[in-house]
């Protein structure tokens, strides 16, 4: 059964989503019908630079579905989120690097994954330096200059 009823409350959609068995393609026996949640989640990043010392400068909003991988650096202090190239270039990704507390990569990646998978909000703040708002407390900064010079 195709669920097309809208609006459902976000709590209900989140609850339904969490119980979805992706291997079986169904919700663990509680439901006899399939539910597709029509939500596009976006990941938000913002640096702590300012225009005229007032307005937060440089930011990015990227669909979560374009996230290709997350990789912790060799020293464990950086986490790189790679997205499919915004310019459709081949062999290169749009990358945003976050500074994290050493050896906290797993917890940060888990937090991002869970928010994308189970979060109720379509607008997900991964790292907002300007407002000190991070999806996980071990994220300390946005290293990448978000000035649009992506590949």
């Amino acid at each position: 059964m195709w669920l097309t009823a809208w609006p459902l409350t976000l709590d209900l959609l989140t609850s339904l989503n969490r119980r979805y068995d992706y291997e079986k393609g169904s919700f663990g026996g509680l439901f006899l019908f399939r539910i597709f949640v029509f939500m596009i989640k976006f990941l938000f990043f913002q640096s702590d630079s300012y225009d005229n010392t007032i307005y937060p400068n440089d930011g990015a909003l990227i669909p979560a579905e374009r996230l290709a991988d997350m990789e912790v650096s060799a020293d464990g202090t950086d986490l790189t989120l790679s997205f499919n190239s915004m310019l459709q270039s081949k062999g290169v990704a749009t990358e945003i690097v976050l500074s994290i507390v050493e050896d906290s990569g797993r917890e940060v990646m888990a937090a991002i994954s869970e928010e994308i998978a189970f979060g109720r909000e379509a607008f997900i703040v991964i790292a907002d330096e300007a407002n000190s708002d991070f999806i996980h407390g071990d994220i300390t900064a946005v290293e990448t200059t978000l000035d649009g010079s992506f590949a």
């Binding site: 937060p56 909003l61 997205f83």
Partner: peptide, 18 residues
């Protein structure tokens, strides 16, 4: 929609796959 980039707090670039 591939993403939206904020540039110098004023401009916003909407990126779309061709």
């Amino acid at each position: 929609l591939a993403g939206i980039m904020i540039k110098t707090s004023t401009f916003m670039d909407f990126h779309f796959d061709g």
